[in-house]
Design a protein around this nucleic acid. Structure first.
Lengths: 197, 197
DNA sequence: AAATCTACCTAACGTTTGTTAGAATTTTAC
DNA sequence: GTAAAATTCTAACAAACGTTAGGTAGATTT
């Protein structure tokens, strides 16, 4: 091949990006290393120069996403705004994440079950931590009188769940998505990639 | 074993129930036929007297759920009530389904990707059909002046998505769940089995 | 020019997978 | 109590899996 040399990190990123795309499409269990390699134009064995194992790929994807969410929550927490504004910003971030890193977020949402035993435990802890702190944020908003006195946990789950539909709804457009998104908030809607009952 | 004889259908149901439980827990790809058999106290090969293939198990689960939803929607459509009451009844049914058939619904929501190519196509069509008709119902409700003039598709997705949190929230209690559910709408809440970002 | 390093290759490994064939056993019917 | 039918077993298959070993061609360094 006549491709110019890319450094190890770039190739690794390529592998992770394509893996996320395939995992979303066919699931972690439904995607073989040979599938992934073929999509990258190389042999399965060659990928092991860049990665340690298939499990490691999933792990990298899931923890990257998890840490993104947690880091952003931390940023929000220290901001000196109202609780409602914090929640709004958080929701905006969720939507942005799903639009910018669609495959990775989907994989994290659906295939985390396939994480190795130890990593699975850590992952669950991270997610629990996120939820706890988000719930705390909601409670604080209620206590401050900014939010109605709903059950914080129910509110938490309803917010997170209802946010999920962006994942199914959003399909990347080649360009000017911002335009379409703004001007015709729903007329540009393509039918969803996949939805639910 | 001293278990009394059950007929073929009963055993098949047992297999499907346990499969749904395992698929939810470890995913379709993460559950082997030997795992499933072990859980049922038999050998993997023995299950093939009752079933045709692993794919067929998933297929049976997914289409059973899909048809349940579609059948109920059909029932609702011919009822002579307001559109709002129809929507309410539909939402109630979704919640009921997730409480009564939790594992099956979860599997249908998460592992439908692993369906065989042809069955996958059919499944997507069924789901699309469900969504279209539900969207029609919402539109009709708007036209009748019963609902605010929101974008029907956005409403559709938001409703379905936000309903999903029951799946993560609900944990079966051995008895008297109705009591707890009614009397302390959220005090009995256990932490979720697994949630999302 | 030689030596080293980078990034891939081919070949193959041991496992696990879903599944089949056929024998063995249990249950039912007469 | 015996024959038939229903159900599960053992044993094994071929295919696919993730992964390792060792080699090779090209680039980079010395």
């Amino acid at each position: 091949m006549a491709t110019i040399t890319k450094n190890k990190t770039e190739k690794l990123d390529q592998i992770l990006k394509e893996a996320a795309r395939l995992f979303r499409q066919k699931g972690f269990g439904g995607t073989s290393m040979r599938d992934l390699a073929a999509q990258l134009g190389m042999e399965a064995a060659s990928m092991y120069y860049h990665i340690g194992s298939k499990d490691e790929i999933l792990e990298k994807i899931c923890f990257e996403v998890a840490n993104n969410y947690l880091d952003h929550l931390e940023e929000i927490e220290i901001q000196e705004t109202t609780h409602i504004d914090k929640l709004k910003e958080l929701i905006r971030f969720h939507v942005r994440m799903m639009i910018v890193n669609g495959p990775e977020v989907s994989v994290t949402n659906h295939d985390w079950k396939y994480l190795t035993k130890e990593k699975l435990t850590t992952f669950k802890e991270l997610r629990k931590l996120y939820e706890t702190r988000l719930e705390t944020l909601i409670s604080a908003g209620i206590q401050a009188g900014e939010l109605a006195a709903v059950n914080p946990q129910v509110a938490l789950f309803t917010i997170l769940s209802s946010l999920r539909w962006v994942e199914y709804w959003w399909k990347p457009q080649r360009s000017a998505w911002r335009y379409r998104f703004r001007r015709r908030p729903w007329k540009g809607t393509r039918h969803a990639r996949n939805a639910h009952w």
